[in-house]
């Protein structure tokens, strides 16, 4: 908790961002290797799988799109699934926007650095974001996401199953740890419970990605700050 309040006072360096991103870069690299395998099972060439990771750089959306292709779905349906999966970046970008300097084009470019772990690492908890933390931790994750896909696309079968190593637990555990650190007020606790409830109710009925997007609306509770 003290680490977080120290960070509040200053902007991290790019290198500190890179360092903070390393654990997630390692996990992401292993997931990317499994993407390299899954993509080929869906009929993509190794080059296409690697190009997709290098250009799209959005893990859950890539897995969702490729799963649709694998089931015989159209390209349009696959792109729509990717868009829904990435819809959570909309509220994340809205939250980040005011912390970005420069003209519209430059802010749009910096916004491309948003991935879940980096956004959460960069969030200072007071509504502002540490920009270098975002850029640094995304940079290292981009490198391993792309190299991981290369390794998976070429030597996929020999790498084994990332689930066997429990790697799929890394992201939710990371988010849970950050969530617990955010729990400084009863209001934050209530919003987290509401967000979790919205997601739970929507998971069985809404397309993948929508539950998290709608859950972000729980933050609108903040509008009532002055009324109590």
């Amino acid at each position: 908790m003290s680490v977080r309040s120290e960070r509040q006072a200053r902007e991290s360096t790019l290198l500190e961002g890179v360092r903070a991103g390393i654990p997630f870069a390692i996990a992401g690299g292993l997931l990317a290797a499994s993407f390299g395998v899954v993509a080929q099972e869906a009929g993509l060439s190794p080059v296409a799988a690697i190009a997709m990771s290098a250009i799209v750089f959005a893990g859950s959306a890539q897995f969702a799109a490729v799963a649709i292709i694998d089931e015989g779905g159209t390209v349009g349906a696959a792109v729509a699934a990717a868009a829904l999966m990435n819809s959570r970046f909309l509220p994340m970008g809205v939250a980040l926007g005011p912390s970005l300097p420069g003209g519209a084009l430059r802010r749009a470019a910096q916004g491309q650095a948003v991935v879940d772990a980096s956004w959460a690492l960069a969030s200072r908890g007071d509504g502002t974001f540490d920009r270098m933390m975002l850029l640094g931790s995304s940079a290292i994750q981009y490198v391993t996401w792309t190299t991981g896909t290369v390794l998976g696309a070429i030597w996929g079968e020999k790498l084994g199953d990332p689930e066997r190593l429990g790697l799929d637990a890394i992201y939710p555990a990371f988010f849970l740890a950050l969530l617990l650190i955010e729990m400084k007020s009863r209001r934050a606790l209530g919003v987290a419970a509401l967000g979790a409830l919205i997601a739970l109710v929507l998971i069985p009925v809404a397309p993948a990605g929508v539950p998290v997007l709608v859950a972000s609306l729980a933050s609108l509770v903040g509008l009532h700050r002055r009324m109590r």
């Binding site: 809205v94 005011p98 519209a104 007071d126 955010e182 967000g195």
Partner: peptide
């Protein structure tokens, strides 16, 4: 988000919503 909301001061009520976005999104994730 960055294009629409960057580079300007936002009302305090909006900042209050942003500060609560992390708990909402993290819990859902």
């Amino acid at each position: 988000g960055p294009v629409a909301l960057g580079g300007r001061e936002l009302p305090e009520r909006f900042t209050g919503v942003i500060a609560l976005m992390a708990p909402a999104l993290l819990a859902a994730l």
